[in-house]
Design a binder for these strands. Structure first.
Lengths: 227, 227
DNA sequence: AAATGATCGATTGTCAACAATCTTGCCAGC
DNA sequence: GCTGGCAAGATTGTTGACAATCGATCATTT
């Protein structure tokens, strides 16, 4: 009997044009290839991707539902330009979600979880070393994604994925602006240790702290701008 | 200078076909007019609404992103059939979100908030009196929506709205199956009192309790089915 | 009889043309 | 100089036809 645990035996994924385009466009936005606030038009993108406006529209609908782009009827579409308020909201939202995720997974953590966490941590460290902001923002989100993937809460995972794009966008911008990789590295050492440790309470405190640090960092950045 | 606080001065809403259809379809699903698991086809619905498949497809895309329907490429689309697992997930997710919402709003509650809360509570009581399951599930969701609308956290509101449909669907089914309106009424008396009270701690405890009661109710229902 | 392969209807995916709407810039009139 | 309206261009919204894929049914073969 064939079991489904081997990923090579997983059911094939139908990749419709819309999905492929959505994936590519998402990458382009998150990586900063298309700057925030830029206007994008369906016809141009359709030409660029070599498809008609139909599937492209659908892809844009997806990204719009993720908040990565904003469409005004009959007028135009622009890629998200993150405001300080957006960033504060992303931080607090993420804290609430990650708190739930750790509560859910805490008593179900196993060896595979620890192994995968270490693996993703290594990737993050490597990308930090190379100073590749896009790659390391992706690695950071990927590291944090694990707890959502592993906790077995589909709705929670879905909610996380809906804000993960915006978070990654922020991380990439932030690192590019004043990319001090030391704090990121330290923060994730702590994260790893606590996530594999014995105290849920300490882990949740770290999650909250992580948010507070992020917001205070944002605030001092804003003060430096116009203060 | 004109401020934007007056709702009559808010920018007009463009209601495109897709949006109207999405709204109507959502209602039809949530109200149970279309049963869970039913297959729906784009052509049929397009004929029914008197539009072409394009806008209808877009509306279905929206509902799919809300989890109310599930589409398999080239194969078909079915409306969501809630599983016990879905319901457990909705409950825990909702608890996490509502906890954040009350933390955010607690020190900013004002007279208008209290007034609106009372108003929506009255509507809920009225619908319960009339034994209209669809209307009262809508009223219940509407009552709980206020804290999300008023807390000024756009991302949180967005996340709430994404699960509110599924929650309402569950509430309507649940009430129709064994509609005891007494407990609902009592629970919301408590909710009102605490939401307008002085202790955030007590309010959050109530939110958690509300979830626990919901899940244990679900569990005893399941036991009664196959036990 | 069981397994394999072909056929057909149903359903979603894609396309290119057309319609509706918004924004911008210009011009006349005051 | 300012206001109002009008026209042009750009952009999204909508349509109907065609293509690709799937699931079930039925014939074929071993």
């Amino acid at each position: 009997m064939l079991t489904n645990t081997d990923k090579r035996m997983a059911p094939v994924k139908r990749e419709t044009f819309s999905n492929q385009i959505a994936t590519n466009l998402r990458r382009a936005i998150i990586s900063g290839e298309i700057e925030g606030g830029t206007q994008i038009t369906e016809s141009d993108l359709a030409r660029h991707f070599g498809v008609s406006r139909g599937p492209l529209r659908e892809a844009m609908g997806q990204l719009a539902s993720e908040g990565l782009i904003v469409t005004i009827p009959y007028t135009g579409t622009r890629v998200l330009k993150l405001s300080p308020r957006d960033i504060r909201e992303i931080h607090s939202m993420r804290t609430a979600l990650e708190t739930l995720a750790f509560k859910e997974i805490w008593d179900h953590r196993d060896a595979a979880f620890a192994r995968e966490l270490e693996a993703r941590h290594k990737v993050l460290l490597a990308t930090l070393e190379m100073n590749d902001h896009v790659a390391s923002s992706e690695a950071e989100v990927n590291l944090h994604s694990l707890v959502y993937e592993a906790c077995g809460h589909r709705l929670l995972l879905e909610s996380w994925q809906r804000i993960a794009g915006r978070l990654q966008l922020y991380l990439a911008i932030h690192q590019r602006a004043h990319g001090r990789r030391g704090p990121i590295k330290d923060a994730h050492e702590r994260y790893m240790q606590l996530a594999l440790g014995d105290s849920l309470e300490l882990m949740l405190a770290e999650v909250e702290d992580h948010m507070r640090r992020g917001i205070s960092q944002l605030e001092s950045y804003l003060d430096g701008l116009d203060g």
